[in-house]
């Protein structure tokens, strides 16, 4: 249990550092700024209580906000996906439901399941974030395009990260 919490804590630090030190500084064509940190909420263990999800999301969002001068925009978007997560998990559950302590990774639940899961929540996160940032209807379509493009890049980065670093659990699929 303690090891698991320590693992999650390090993942939190890693994702925040990656976002704040690297991804926030991409200055390429003015369109590209993926927000990979939201992946932390998607990856939390399946048995995490709902209220704890919301609190963790709020803290994560505020930390990112603190580094990028955005008030509470990231917190708002992250809390929203934390709220939506249990519903999305129920919506796309496998036929016999989830087994206890299932790891939410493509190695365990399959690539298509993982792709649907991440793209639904990441797209929701990016749409909310970009619309709150612009807060104006006159730029509706350009904002939409920007949100979808960045959500795509974020999902791509997450999947790459999963196959590069999500180690060791390949055999679980055959056992469980």
């Amino acid at each position: 249990m303690i090891i698991k919490i320590a693992q999650l804590f390090f993942r939190f630090l890693f994702l925040v550092a990656l976002q704040v030190l690297v991804l926030n500084h991409i200055q390429w064509s003015g369109y590209i700024n993926p927000y990979v940190y939201a992946f932390f909420i998607l990856m939390l263990p399946i048995e995490t209580p709902k209220w704890l999800l919301l609190i963790i999301a709020f803290i994560l969002g505020l930390v990112i906000d603190m580094f990028s001068d955005t008030g509470g925009m990231h917190a708002a978007a992250t809390v929203l996906i934390a709220w939506a997560r249990p519903g999305v998990l129920r919506l796309i559950a496998p036929r016999d439901g989830y087994e206890p302590e299932t790891k939410l990774s493509p190695q365990v639940l399959g690539f298509r399941w993982f792709l649907t899961y991440t793209s639904m929540l990441i797209l929701l996160h990016h749409l909310v974030l970009f619309y709150v940032e612009v807060f104006r209807f006159s730029e509706f379509f350009s904002t939409f395009f920007k949100a979808v493009l960045n959500a795509g890049i974020t999902v791509l980065l997450i999947i790459l990260g999963q196959y590069l670093f999500g180690r060791g659990n390949r055999h679980e699929r055959f056992i469980g």
Binding site: L62, D65, G71, G72, V79, W83
Partner: peptide, 27 residues
Amino acid sequence: FFLLLEVLCGYLIIRNKSFQRSSFVNS
């Protein structure tokens, strides 16, 4: 609880927008 947190976020965003009252979540 979700709504409460979102309202709190909205408050922080609006506070951050105004010049006169400086926010406490900033760089």
